[in-house]
Amino acid sequence: MRKIKKQKIYLLALLLPFITFVIGFEIGPLVAMIKNSFYADDGIQVTINQYITIFKSKFYLQAIQNSLVISLFSAVTSVIIAVIAAYSLTKFSQKIQNRLLMITNMTSNFEGIPLSFSYIILLGNNGLFTLLFSKIGWDVFADFNLYSWTGLILVYIYFQIPLAVMLIYPSYQGIKKQWKEASSLLGGSTSSFWLHIGIPVLLPSIVGTFSILFANAMGAYATAYALVGSNYNLLSLQIASLVASDVALKPQLGSAMGVLLAATMIGAMWFNERMMRRIRRDLR
């Protein structure tokens, strides 16, 4: 009996490094951030002023709004493209499908700083396409500015699409050929099959993918940093400049904005769960 107890203590001791890391670098910093967001700029007085500051400031509200809009827009666009593209993918032979998925998989690793750089080469002020188009005389890109909202959207959609395709593609495997046959035997057309069977079956996966993409864009930092620096007002860029820049550090305000960003992400995940459960209850 005593031997077993001794062994348990020994085993628990082996868990210590893990617990130390989780507390030191995961839970601890999170708690510190939440706590810090309730302090005044001097770090002594307890207050909720930081949150009031954010919600009263046009500038910070703008940052939140810009982040939300860019995330929603890029997530919706990518999901729509991915739903169509993934369906088209399923029409090819298995070998080609695998090869195409390999390409999406490989390009999904092309993100952050290198991706922004690529876009600067292609579409920046002296970009290949920019120069080429202006020489040919196409003026579609005359008003285009990569270092702006449109540019950001373009790059965000680029890194969202491969992810969306890979997330949605497997759920097409769930749509059985027999369902289509059954539906057409009962007199349903192709469009009524998709309207009443196909899309409802895909819906949880679409909603789930959407919230993952949304969260992905909300938290994106490297891409935006490389492309617009501090010229564009985004939540993640603001947090970075508040906690780790060379000018005006306001860690308490940065913490409050960090809490808001984390809350949005958790909100997106919660929404995903809710939708999933709701759809599943309907099915029952």
Binding site: F25, P29, A32, I239, A240, G258, L261, A262
Partner: peptide
Amino acid sequence: AAAMLPYGIPPIVGAVGLIKV
């Protein structure tokens, strides 16, 4: 829970707390 939590927290948020601590 401990292992999957980092997946929902972007580095930008994680960094705020790490700098503080």
